[in-house]
């Protein structure tokens, strides 16, 4: 049985702004890099076609801006992570070094995938994204804190409200964001549920 992971009451790191709405998972990890049987090495291809020209030259994407090297918080817009359910997208971001995402909204499957991996996704309003983007533009080394417990984002003395759904918040605070152990612990209840489903006997 798997063990609970370390709780994540807060996340602290530098941030990088990747502007845009409806950034889809094809953009986060183009399908051709999914021809793999492990998630290792996906980090290098995060946002590949946004970052590199066809011949491999840099397009000067924010993720490649040396001032933001080592950033662990990603700032973006509305409906972040829409489209394909590919977990390769959050896996690529995680392996790139992203541990938290602040956006005005998230696509549902992407949000769930992130939570399971311990990537904190918090909703903030557009003005907050603008303020944070301006701030880290001026001071790329500014330490951004996502306070999971207090549902607030802080930089120095400044603070902005953030929203994390209750279940995800609870999962981070207890270190049970990967639910496998909890699901496994209820095998008897699973059997009882299955026994009541008429269709399992029809096959």
């Amino acid at each position: 049985m798997t063990q609970p992971f370390a709780p994540i009451p807060r996340l602290v790191g530098t941030a990088v702004h990747v502007p845009g709405d409806d950034i889809d998972t094809d953009r986060i990890i183009p399908a051709r890099y999914m021809k793999v049987v492990t998630f290792d090495g996906l980090g290098a291809h995060a946002f590949h076609d946004e970052r590199f020209t066809a011949d491999g030259g840099s397009k000067g994407h924010p993720l490649d801006d040396p001032r933001h090297a080592g950033a662990s918080v990603l700032l973006s817009g509305r409906n972040f992570g829409c489209g394909s359910s590919r977990e390769h997208a959050p896996q690529a971001l995680l392996r790139f070094g992203i541990k938290g995402i602040l956006a005005t909204s998230f696509a549902e499957i992407f949000f769930g995938n992130c939570t399971t991996l311990g990537i904190v996704c918090a909703r903030v309003d557009e003005a907050t994204i603008r303020a944070l983007a301006d701030l880290v533009h001026v001071d790329p080394q500014a330490q951004v804190t996502i306070d999971v417990e207090g549902e607030v984002v802080r930089v120095g003395a400044q603070a902005w409200p953030a929203q994390i759904p209750a279940s995800a918040r609870e999962a981070f605070l207890t270190g049970r964001y990967d639910p496998l152990a909890t699901l496994q612990a209820r095998a008897d209840a699973v059997r009882a549920t299955a026994a009541k489903l008429p269709y399992l006997g029809w096959r």
Partner: peptide
């Protein structure tokens, strides 16, 4: 009908009656 129970974080543990698998999202 498919609810096994409620998890400590408030989510539902849901039984999956049919699980379909393809080559891209399953090896890991």
């Amino acid at each position: 009908a498919h609810t096994v129970g409620t998890l400590p974080d408030g989510r539902t543990q849901l039984f999956v009656g049919l699980h379909l698998v393809h080559e891209v999202t399953s090896p890991q």
